[in-house]
Design a protein around this nucleic acid. Structure first.
Lengths: 195, 195
DNA sequence: TTTTTTATGTAGTGATCACTACATAATTGC
DNA sequence: GCAATTATGTAGTGATCACTACATAAAAAA
């Protein structure tokens, strides 16, 4: 998992995997079937619900708290010096040669699931009344995920943890401002686009 | 350039390059010296100042306009269906096997240069008075670049151009809110952290 | 124990990797 | 025209890729 996380699917060779695991190719193939299948199991372990900061964050009482904790908890993990920087789901399938597009699609689907979770939490916030009824869940979810994905690149560039938290301060200020425009739009009937 | 842009440094083989260029390996090596050197030339062409939306954006009269145009112009390029999605400098060196770390460092340095340009433009905005004197150029630059880098991943996931612009609306609302806290901090002596 | 099943290591599969020696073709200088 | 130089294609370099046939070793079943 750590090798795939750090070097990506194609940047990790079977030789690297077998030497890191202390086993031979035969054992690896008996246990996992193929490099593809092993990668998928590694991603599944990385993305397991019981370890997922995102899943945990969605339990927060308001949509805003949920999104903020999602950003902060994931960012903490991204810059944790004990693990490779950034998010495995975001980074490990960025560069693929022809013939491995399915790996990229699999990861894109997982990112889509995260987006769906955030979007659903936003919709619930609007229903619960902690967000304006007119809040655009698609835009807010895209915004939150754009910041989240950007933090993976920042982490790869060795971002300072404190500054990452300051970036999230700014991002949440943007969240609040955007939510306010939705509230205003609901009251005035406007389109909600910031001038 | 397009192959490296789309598949990354290691995801692009010499066979792909020679067949796309319609030349033989001999000619490629006579002209460029090595795959590394060709990649660097491709990145240089991609990142040329005369084509750079970022450089052009920095000429805007205020720091806010400069940052907003940087985001919008780059985002337009990221989702342009005529070119690979996302930013070559951000994406093409994400997954590297052992022994090619210098490629990653080279791209990270280019990202650092972009950050420095944005930071310098913010500092100038504070000097010019279109930003509060206490504005934290590091935080604002990191925030802008985090959103920018996140947009590359969104583009890879096939983000809708209109929704990308809406995300930038939210991001700029965040910029304004963050700038406001710096102004408030300057007036009240507070630390400037959004609660 | 003896047999059967399961797990593992050795050694090598063809394919592809980046790269190049060598020969031929095109171009240039005289 | 003729020699020197430059450019290009052919064919192959050793290394490494993901993967596996085969044989041996360990464990389980009889």
């Amino acid at each position: 998992m750590r090798l795939f996380w750090e070097h990506g699917y194609e940047g990790t060779s079977l030789a690297m995997l077998t030497s890191a695991m202390g086993i031979t190719p035969t054992s690896l193939y008996a246990a996992f079937g193929s490099k593809d299948a092993l990668f998928r199991e590694a991603v599944a372990a990385y993305n397991a619900p019981e370890n997922s900061p995102t899943d945990r964050a969605m339990l927060r009482p308001t949509a805003r708290e949920a999104v903020e904790e999602m950003l902060r908890a994931n960012a903490d993990a991204y810059v944790d010096p004990g693990t490779p920087p950034g998010c495995m789901v975001v980074l490990s399938g960025i560069n693929l040669s022809e013939g491995h597009e399915d790996v990229g699609r699999h990861l894109a689907e997982l990112r889509g699931q995260d987006r769906a979770k955030v979007r659903a939490r936003i919709v619930r916030g609007a229903e619960d009344g902690d967000l304006p009824a007119g809040a655009d869940a698609d835009v807010l979810a895209d915004y939150a995920l754009t910041v989240l994905h950007g933090l993976s690149v920042q982490a790869r560039d060795g971002a300072d943890p404190e500054r990452v938290q300051a970036v999230i301060d700014a991002a949440m200020a943007g969240w609040d401002a955007m939510v306010r425009t939705f509230g205003d739009a609901a009251r005035t009937g406007g389109a909600g686009r910031t001038p």
